[in-house]
């Protein structure tokens, strides 16, 4: 039942983004918002706190995303939070992004980077992954400054960690 509900919300998000002709942008922004919610327990608790009035929770979303995301993305996130499904937002977005990628016969590659990637870098990374795994992927980037530098790519259960953080950890293990 919960799975159907998440699927339904995911379809709704994709339909709205497609209807507005901004699928790539909206999916990318939704993906980043979902990652932010997933990694921030306080934000997740705020969005799922039923003691807060719905309009208050929606106002939090609008305040956070207003200057950084497109109005469509902000409206979609506000809609999900307004229906009381803010806790399911990461799962809904994951389902939507994966479904969108699968519609284009691609797998989702979750990329964490310390800096923003250019379109050229994303394209070259997708080509490199294709050359390495034989799978067409759709790159979704999440900014994670804790990596210091480099990238971490997750494709399903496979993780390719090329971050400076990992190398620092390896160096620390060597010292220890």
């Amino acid at each position: 039942m919960a799975d159907d509900r998440i699927g339904g919300y995911a379809d709704a998000l994709l339909s709205v983004a497609a209807a507005e002709g901004a699928s790539d942008l909206v999916e990318d922004e939704l993906f980043r918002v979902a990652e932010a919610v997933r990694s921030n327990d306080e934000l997740l608790a705020t969005l799922t706190d039923r003691k807060l009035p719905v309009d208050r929770r929606q106002r939090v979303v609008e305040d956070l995303l207003g200057p950084q995301a497109s109005p469509i993305t902000t409206a979609l996130v506000s809609m999900v939070v307004g229906t009381g499904r803010g806790g399911d937002l990461p799962a809904i977005v994951d389902r939507a992004v994966a479904k969108s990628a699968a519609g284009r016969n691609r797998a989702l590659a979750r990329v964490r980077s310390a800096v923003e990637l250019s379109d050229d870098q994303k394209a070259r990374l997708a080509a490199a992954i294709k050359a390495s795994t034989g799978t067409d992927v759709e790159i979704r980037v999440v900014i994670d400054e804790s990596l210091l530098g480099g990238l971490v790519t997750e494709i399903g259960d496979d993780v390719i960690d090329g971050s400076v953080r990992r190398r620092m950890a390896q160096l620390k293990e060597t010292f220890s």
Binding site: R124, L125, G150
Partner: peptide, 11 residues
């Protein structure tokens, strides 16, 4: 660093 990572993945 990103370019090196891409090259590593491709390799």
């Amino acid at each position: 660093l990103v370019d090196a990572y891409i090259d590593e993945v491709a390799g």
